[in-house]
Design a protein around this nucleic acid. Structure first.
Length: 554
RNA sequence: UGCCCGAUAGUGUAAUGGAAGCACGUGUGACUUUGACUCACACGGUCCAGGUUCGAACCCUGGUCGGGCAACCA
């Protein structure tokens, strides 16, 4: 893959970078993707990843992968590998630049000491509840906490005691001493270090105090020489604090730039809510193909190319928006249409008996793997006297527009023969149970030597050779565009009860060999891929998407 | 009723003081050995009111509407 394929459309962030480069404020571009290892990545993260890595690529800079592991209670090693895998799968490479916030704990501690020395931080013994009262409300200034004017030496001693485990968890915190009257609540003496006796996945039990996000993140960026630190809109009000900390510390200052997070119709994007779905078994796992997680989308059959394309198209702005999932699906179909091989599968079968086809005869027919790409070659598909076709490809007294069998009409069996329906066998309720046909032996391949046209082409599978497999038909997870729109109702009330339907389908025999991840277009049906649950005896296919526009039988 | 941010077709974005474009979507038609793909056409927009200017989506003022912020989460 060329680098240009990873580039993203220009956006306001690039305008800022262009200006910075032009003015000489920056001479290079260094970005970072800083996930907290406390959950799986979803397509919202893909937007951030594409922005972070794509921007670095565009400007010939670099992008760091940095795990923001400052809260051992929430984080787990389990997520680290999954995150790395997802970033790689998306097509990005951090090279040497893998970092951990915990790598900097020593420096952060020293920086905190520096703040204390400057009289810009103090140990505060107020409980969380008490400080809430001191902080006050947005419309009124807060009150100064009692310990605020403690002498530097005392703060130093207390902070050291915090570090050395001399206090119970939660007994006190270190606060930045900024402005208890600030109209920005984040500037009202925010906590920057808390006591937490938790075993950290990297540093073990070395520390019992851990830095808060606001203190840690800007320092991480500063240490790594990040030039442009992109994050989502909710951190906008944190920016003055980001700048204050680095300015007060008198260290290198990256620029934080905020953009709007991705929202997608018919799904939810918050880690917490996705976790809820997993915990309550409303989906099967984090990688359930209905989930917007990258592992879920991957298992569903979405390609990383399509996701990157989508991220490029949606761009980056500061406008909170809700993107239509149709756009994502369009990107996926574009990719899959161009790149997946074709096959035939019948989902709701009805038997067709070709009465003038010799019993016992079998032919191996040549069928193109990709009609638009000759270089994909041909495969052989067995044909015999009895076939399966879709039940919906037969209709009594069908109108002219109908593309399928009706009594007396000749249709094309895809890449096989022209055949005419001569009789229909029905059950007591009048439902067709079997079609009797005759075929024209001179039409092998599907075209008539006399040039006569048939307007219908349908897919089929030889009954004798068909492979029966489980197919999982996935649909949208929710029935409404925005499950969170109604604040009075739980988003889970809008779960789509038909988001997963299991069926057994008849597949052409070549599909029995199933390597997980392999993608096909089942002609006239949709895009499918082999699920990891597949075994040699029992392949399982997932429906990625239907073809564009549901079939209209009229 | 504090502070911060935002507002361009249904949706997502472009236009950075000089012709409001593109994509998705929707509709119609053509083509078709996939009702797909492809192609053509159509639908449809600058939140409001003032101001600056020869000229405003863009700059200014005032509104309106939407979002964010009061974890020892990130």
């Amino acid at each position: 893959m060329s680098e240009s394929e990873h580039n993203i459309a220009a956006n306001f962030i690039h305008d800022i970078i262009d200006a910075d480069l032009k003015s000489g404020k920056r001479t290079d571009v260094v970005t970072r993707f800083p996930p907290e290892p406390n959950g799986y990545l979803h397509i919202g993260h893909a937007k951030a990843i594409c922005l972070d890595f794509g921007t670095a690529l565009k400007y010939g800079g670099r992008c760091h992968l940095r795990f923001d592991d400052t809260n051992p209670e929430a984080e787990d090693e389990e997520y680290v590998n999954a995150i790395k895998e997802d970033v790689k799968w998306l097509g990005f490479d951090w090279g040497e630049h893998l970092y951990w916030a915990s790598d900097y704990f020593e420096t952060m501690y020293e920086y905190a000491v520096r703040l204390i020395e400057k009289g810009k931080a103090y140990v505060c013994e107020l409980t969380q509840e008490e400080f809430k009262d001191y902080r006050g409300i947005p419309t009124e200034p807060g009150k100064k906490p009692p310990g605020r004017n403690r002498p530097v030496a005392e703060n130093m001693a207390l902070f050291e005691k915090m570090k050395n485990g001399g206090f119970e968890d939660g007994a006190c915190v270190l606060r930045a001493k900024i402005d208890m009257a600030s109209p920005n609540l984040h500037m009202r003496d925010p906590a920057i270090y808390r006591i937490k006796r938790a075993t950290h996945h990297n540093t073990g039990d070395k520390w019992c105090i851990y830095p808060m996000y606001d203190f840690a993140h800007c320092i991480e960026d500063s240490i790594e020489g990040i030039t442009h630190s992109m994050c989502t809109l909710e951190f906008e009000v944190h920016r003055p604090l980001y700048d204050w900390i680095l300015r007060t510390l008198e260290v290198y200052q990256p620029q934080q730039i905020e953009f709007a997070r991705l929202n997608l119709t018919y799904t939810v994007m918050s880690k917490r809510k996705l976790l809820e779905l997993v915990r309550e078994n409303l989906v099967n796992s984090w990688d359930d193909p209905r989930m917007p997680t990258l592992c879920g989308l991957r298992r569903r059959g979405f390609t990383s190319e399509a996701i990157r394309e989508f991220c490029s198209i949606i761009g980056a702005t500061k406008v909170e928006s809700l993107s239509e999932v149709e756009l994502l699906e369009s990107c996926v179909r574009d990719d899959l249409n161009a790149n997946s091989l074709r096959a035939m599968a019948v989902f709701d079968p009805i038997k067709v008996v070709i009465e003038n086809y010799p019993e016992g005869l079998e032919e191996q027919l040549e069928v193109p793997n990709h009609p638009q790409k000759e270089e994909e070659g041909m495969r052989t598909v067995p044909f015999s006297r009895e076939l399966w076709i879709e039940r919906t490809d037969y209709m009594d007294d069908a109108p002219n527009k109908f593309k399928g069998f009706t009594l007396g009409r000749e249709v094309r069996l895809r890449s096989a023969y022209l055949a005419t329906c001569t009789d229909v066998i029905k059950d007591g309720d009048g439902n067709a149970t079997e079609l009797r046909c005759t075929y024209d032996p001179d039409t092998k391949g599907g075209s008539a030597p006399d040039g006569r046209k048939v307007k219908s082409t349908i897919h089929w599978v030889s009954a004798k050779h068909a492979v029966e497999t489980e197919v999982r038909l996935y649909d949208r997870l929710f029935t409404v565009e925005n499950p969170l729109a109604d604040k009075g109702r739980d988003f889970k009330e809008f779960l789509n009860p038909e988001s997963l339907q299991l069926i057994t389908a008849k597949l052409e025999p070549g599909l029995a060999k199933a390597t997980p991840g392999t993608r096909y277009q089942f002609e006239r049906v949709g895009y499918f891929c082999v699920d990891p649950d597949s075994t040699e005896e029992k392949p399982v296919y997932n429906r990625t998407l239907t073809l564009r526009a549901p079939r209209k039988i009229s």
